[in-house]
Amino acid sequence: MPALPLNSQNLPYPDPIHPIIVHFVIAMVFFSFFCDVVGYFTHNNRLFEVSFWNMFVASVAIFLAVIFGQFEAGLANNYEAVQPTLNFHTVMGWSLAALVAAITAWRFVIRNRKPLKIPPAYLGVATFLICLVFLQVYLGSKLFWVYGLHVEPVVEAMKQGALR
Rank of each mutant, 00 (worst) to 15 (best):
I118R: 00
A65V: 14
W106V: 11
R111E: 01
E80S: 11
R107Y: 11
R113M: 12
L86E: 11
A58L: 07
I62H: 05
A105P: 06
T42F: 02
P153V: 14
V133Q: 00
F31L: 13
V125M: 03
K114C: 07
L139S: 07
V82M: 12
Y40N: 00
Y122D: 02
V151H: 06
F41M: 02
P84E: 03
H43M: 11
K159G: 15
L139A: 10
I103K: 12
E152D: 13
N87E: 10
N78L: 14
N78R: 13
V82P: 08
L135F: 08
A65L: 11
A73D: 11
T104Y: 04
T104D: 00
W53V: 11
A126V: 03
V100W: 02
V82Q: 10
V91E: 07
L86N: 14
A97P: 05
L116D: 07
M28T: 07
A105R: 07
T42K: 01
A98H: 06
M92W: 09
F88V: 15
A27S: 08
S59G: 08
F33W: 03
R46H: 12
T127S: 10
C35T: 09
S59T: 06
V151W: 03
L139G: 06
W145D: 15
V125N: 00
T85C: 11
H150C: 10
F33M: 05
F52A: 07
L135P: 02
Q70A: 12
K117Q: 08
L116V: 01
Q136K: 08
M55C: 12
Q70K: 13
A27C: 04
N77D: 13
F33L: 05
A61I: 12
V91S: 11
